[in-house]
Design a protein around this nucleic acid. Structure first.
Lengths: 191, 191
DNA sequence: CACGCTTATGCAACTAGTTGCATAAAGCGG
DNA sequence: CCGCTTTATGCAACTAGTTGCATAAGCGTG
């Protein structure tokens, strides 16, 4: 249950409207906690009802009008509490690894092309992260906040690097496999 | 929507009852696609209703009695279709990275201990993976199925290795931080 | 044999997340 | 000033996943 806390963090970094939050989730925060605009609007409503955030007063608060929120002291306190509380890591789910395991039983037909596609996607993401690193973390900036945020970005960079390497290994393995990509069924007797 | 396919894969590897599947999800398959027993029972019911699997005939099919399932040809076909179909990677969610980002705003109180705890958990998981590797993939075994399954295990091993390294960096960073773990608020002016 | 423990299956209610669509105002071009 | 697109907010329905509990048989033991 971390979406409210992701939103609190984003709002503390800068008070924003629902749509602005949505855009920022598409960029930085969404890299490790994605959310759609509907989730965000719903959660903003809840957080306001709970007294953790409030809408900044606007001139004409009408529909189709930006409505910006800011974090109240209670919200900051709740975020600090959650941040410091011990949490168990959630078990991950990775469909690609699952598919590879399935391929060991029903055959590898079609999967190699998708591995290549994933490789490209990860390379693109890595390039984006490196660009952010170059832009936001030049050698000079190294206050405590910068160090922490840089650390998070490093995780993103290293994870993408890992996937690129692993997909490389996987594709190399496929090159050695008999009839790779031709739909053979390794679990079945072969002629 | 991959749980049914995870179950089909597991059942193809070996026909099983709901509880046996649950146990196997706790071990091997659950490492990259976790599921509770309730999810599994529900899904087994659906898969049977759709004609993708069937219950193996038992002597006395009563409650509290093992009921094993096997995959029907339609199930194998569906799994092969799904395995070969192109799929976009789901955006990941990582609460720990989110917390670190929050810590950059509301302070790092309490989080360092949890980083250490996570480090330990990952070290334990890595040890488990290495044990599985030693046991299931000795140098001799290298048929196509083994290579694919080993590849999946390698991903698990390398991912754990990545997290262990990253958590090491993170903890080193904390050691350099002023007042680390004492609840300072880096976003606020300091005395 | 009655009691409690383990194995095995399952329902119901809840929480979280996704998808599709609706509404409304502002800006803009003819 | 009318229709079109963009910006902004939001509801409703659906799908997926989790939590808590219920049921029932088997098994051991005092």
């Amino acid at each position: 249950m971390s979406l409210p806390h992701a939103i609190l963090t984003a709002l503390l970094e800068k008070p924003s409207s629902g749509l602005e939050l949505t855009r920022r989730f598409d960029r930085s925060i969404g890299y490790f906690w994605s959310a759609t605009h509907q989730q965000i609007y719903r959660e903003l409503g809840k957080l306001e009802a709970e007294g953790l955030i409030r809408a900044l007063p606007a001139e004409q608060p009408a529909r189709g009008q930006k409505k910006a929120y800011e974090v109240l002291p209670a919200g900051r306190a709740e975020l600090a509490r959650w941040t410091g509380a011990s949490q168990d890591p959630k078990p991950h789910r990775d469909a690609l690894l699952l598919r590879l395991r399935a391929a060991a039983v029903v055959g590898t037909a079609g999967i190699e092309a998708d591995l290549r596609r994933h490789l490209e996607l990860h390379e693109r993401q890595l390039a984006e992260y490196r660009e952010i690193e170059r832009r936001d973390f030049p050698p000079g900036r190294d206050g405590p906040e910068d160090r922490l945020r840089h650390l998070v970005l490093r995780a993103g960079i290293d994870l993408e690097t890992f996937w690129i390497q692993w997909l490389g290994h996987a594709l190399a393995e496929f090159a050695h496999l008999p009839d790779a990509g031709e739909g053979e069924r390794p679990g079945e007797p072969r002629a």
